[in-house]
């Protein structure tokens, strides 16, 4: 049940950001679909993988791959799908709890949470980088 709610809301969130970034037409649909893929991967991998950081890395990898492929099919900049599809993976919750612990002055918890949030963001970045490097390596002209 929680999973279903997460998948639906994650997709809606990505759709909302796609609207904010002025994505139109069929690209809007595929941007929201990217959000769906991201949350779906996150939920399904979460069943098997204990480490949240590893989960984030794998999701980011798959979603970036999706973005690169879609960008080539639809002939549009990769940014379109990267920035919207990764939205559900942004560690907003964990960032918030880092903030609250900083506010209440629990320094050791703050450091724990802070490092955890940074590792999630790092995992996200690593996924993007791996795909970006491979896309460059394959060396197709992007225009």
């Amino acid at each position: 049940m929680t999973m279903l709610v997460q998948i639906i809301t994650g997709t809606l969130g990505a759709l909302g950001f796609a609207l904010l970034y002025n994505i139109r037409g069929k690209r809007l649909f595929f941007a929201a679909l990217g959000g769906l893929i991201a949350t779906l991967c996150y939920c399904v991998f979460g069943l098997f993988i204990q480490s949240e950081v590893l989960n984030y890395f794998l999701c980011s990898l798959l979603v970036s791959l999706y973005a690169e492929i879609m960008a080539r099919i639809i002939k549009t900049p990769t940014t379109t799908f990267i920035i919207t599809s990764l939205i559900p993976l942004i560690p907003g919750g964990s960032l918030y709890y880092t903030m609250t612990t900083a506010f209440s002055g629990e320094i050791s918890t703050f450091i724990d949470k802070g490092i955890y949030t940074l590792s999630l963001a790092g995992a996200l970045a690593a996924g993007i980088i791996v795909v970006l490097s491979f896309a460059k390596f394959l060396g197709k002209k992007r225009i």
Binding site: L12, G13, L19, L20, G93
Partner: peptide
């Protein structure tokens, strides 16, 4: 869109 995003992520988290 603003409403949708914040409403959706409140449920998401």
């Amino acid at each position: 869109a603003y409403g949708l995003i914040s409403g959706a992520f409140a449920l998401f988290f």
